[in-house]
Deep mutational scan, measured.
Amino acid sequence: NITNLCPFDEVFNATRFASVYAWNRKRISNCVADYSVLYNLAPFFTFKCYGVSPTKLNDLCFTNVYADSFVIRGDEVRQIAPGQTGNIADYNYKLPDDFTGCVIAWNSNKLDSKVSGNYNYLYRLFRKSNLKPFERDISTEIYQAGNKPCNGVAGFNCYFPLRSYSFRPTYGVGHQPYRVVVLSFELLHAPATVCGPKKST
């Protein structure tokens, strides 16, 4: 009989979030998941669920729940959905087409922007091929755009693959930082360890 609440607040209220290319994953298990708490945590810009209804979450049980978190800019949030393409979905964080879970995003301009520009958040701009779903690539190998090998040196047709967002508070919403948490629900042929409040007794 599990009584402890799932530590969603640790994920959502973390002081620092990860850069999207090096997104963070927390496995959540053996706890009571009260998803209604999430609705009250922040004024969400996005709370979209796929393959599951957000209002039914509190009635369900899962084997595992994974919470992935990272920062992107406002106009990239739409890429965090099944079947999307674009720089983020292709080279940084890719959801599977049959994704079961929820994408939660909110504006973090007050936390993640600086007047002089916050350069701490990076994204991958160049990659030889698209990522597979939930693949994480943290390599910093020089990207070869031409025929000549780069031998690890940046220059003509040889690019450092990561680029930094420079978040400034005066930017338009599309270029402001957004914190994203992706909850993916895993149903294996194994005992369910993460249940809503109704199912945990």
Rank of each mutant, 00 (worst) to 15 (best):
T201N: 15
Y171N: 15
A105G: 03
V103Q: 00
R73F: 02
E135W: 01
A89I: 02
P161R: 02
A18H: 09
R16G: 07
D112M: 01
S19W: 01
N130Y: 10
K114G: 14
A18G: 08
G196H: 10
S19F: 01
D98E: 09
L131N: 02
Y50N: 01
D34M: 07
A67R: 00
S108G: 04
C61D: 09
V180I: 08
R163H: 10
I142N: 06
N13V: 00
L131G: 03
A105L: 03
N58Y: 07
S200T: 14
Y171V: 14
T85I: 08
P177G: 02
R78P: 14
K114V: 11
T193M: 11
H175L: 10
K132C: 05
S53C: 07
P149N: 11
F47C: 13
S29K: 09
E186C: 05
N64I: 13
Y93E: 01
V20L: 02
F70G: 02
I80S: 02
Y123C: 06
C6E: 03
C6H: 03
Y119W: 10
S116D: 15
C158G: 04
R124K: 04
N13Y: 07
V180W: 01
G146L: 04
S108K: 02
V37E: 09
Y123I: 03
A14K: 09
L111T: 14
S164D: 08
N4H: 11
F160V: 12
A89R: 02
N109C: 09
A89H: 02
T55W: 10
G101E: 00
C31T: 04
I72V: 13
R136M: 04
N40G: 09
D75W: 02
P43E: 11
Y121A: 05
A14W: 00
R136C: 05
C195E: 09
T100E: 07
S29H: 12
R136F: 02
V71Y: 01
C61E: 10
Q176K: 03
A190M: 11
Y159K: 12
C195T: 08
F126N: 13
F126T: 11
I88C: 00
K26T: 14
P43T: 08
T55Q: 14
V37C: 12
L5V: 11
P133C: 04
E186T: 09
Y50V: 02
N157K: 12
P7S: 13
W23C: 03
N1F: 03
Y50M: 01
V181M: 05
R16L: 08
L188V: 13
D9W: 10
Y91G: 03
Y119T: 15
P161S: 03
P82R: 00
G172N: 15
Y39D: 10
A145P: 06
G83A: 07
A18K: 06
I72F: 01
N87I: 15
Y165N: 05
N87A: 14
Y21T: 05
T201K: 14
F44D: 15
R16I: 10
A18Y: 07
I28C: 06
Q176M: 07
P197H: 14
V153Q: 14
D9N: 12
I104Q: 00
Q79W: 01
F44C: 13
S184C: 13
I28F: 15
A89C: 04
